[in-house]
Amino acid sequence: MPGTHLVENLKNLFATVDIGTALMNSFIIAIITTFLTLLIGSLAGYGFEIYRTKGKDMVFNILLLSMMIPFAAIMIPLYRFFGQVSSVSPLIGIDTLAAAILPTIITAFFIFFFRQNTKMFAKELVEAGRIDGLSELGIFFRIYLPTMKTTYAAAAIIAFMNSWNNYLWPLVVLQSPENQTIPLLISNLGAGYTPDYGVIMTAIVIATLPTAIVFFLMQRHFVAGMMGSVKG
């Protein structure tokens, strides 16, 4: 039962698998992915809403289409693509963390999310920024970004979680043990004629903690009424 054998389970876990490497890889992937996802997604979400034109609305709707196909359907062409990339530049080809990261950082999901939240953003602030002589990017970084702190906090939680738990793509694109991530490691643990459930559950607890901590830290930004005070 959990608790009584915790120390033993931990010992077995560290003895049987290289959980340190897997944690490290998952952290590298999740942190880079979260950072880039937020930056690229919010730039686009802001762009689509603030500089709204018919043409951009059309492009936005087309981008949304990319959310609708099951990933399993595009996995094989994507693998072939990275196979071809491998021959040109092995640094971002198959079996590199870069290949695990790249297709996940630009998603219609976060563009959509930021666009919908930008609808709630007081657009007078943009005009105010222009009058103050800020450049358009300046307005984005100096006014929009600090004002939308809670939106970024929510996006960070989701992006980190998605990346941390991402399974299918890392599974097919990462091969060597040095590149293993946490979900793959857990999947391996349960894969025998005689699985050790104590060890599996211990690994799962370790795997769940980082996202829970990220959530706990980020949710503190969700404080009612904070928004009104950040008028520029």
């Binding site: 997604g41 802001y46 630009i106 563009i111």
Partner: peptide, 25 residues
């Protein structure tokens, strides 16, 4: 003009990593 700059990277990325495979699919 500026608006397109904001969304350029996303359009390229989604085109490459989603639409190209979607056409293949």
């Amino acid at each position: 003009y500026i608006g397109w700059i904001f969304i350029l990277l996303s359009v390229l990325g989604i085109g490459l990593f989603y639409f190209y495979p979607m056409v293949q699919a």
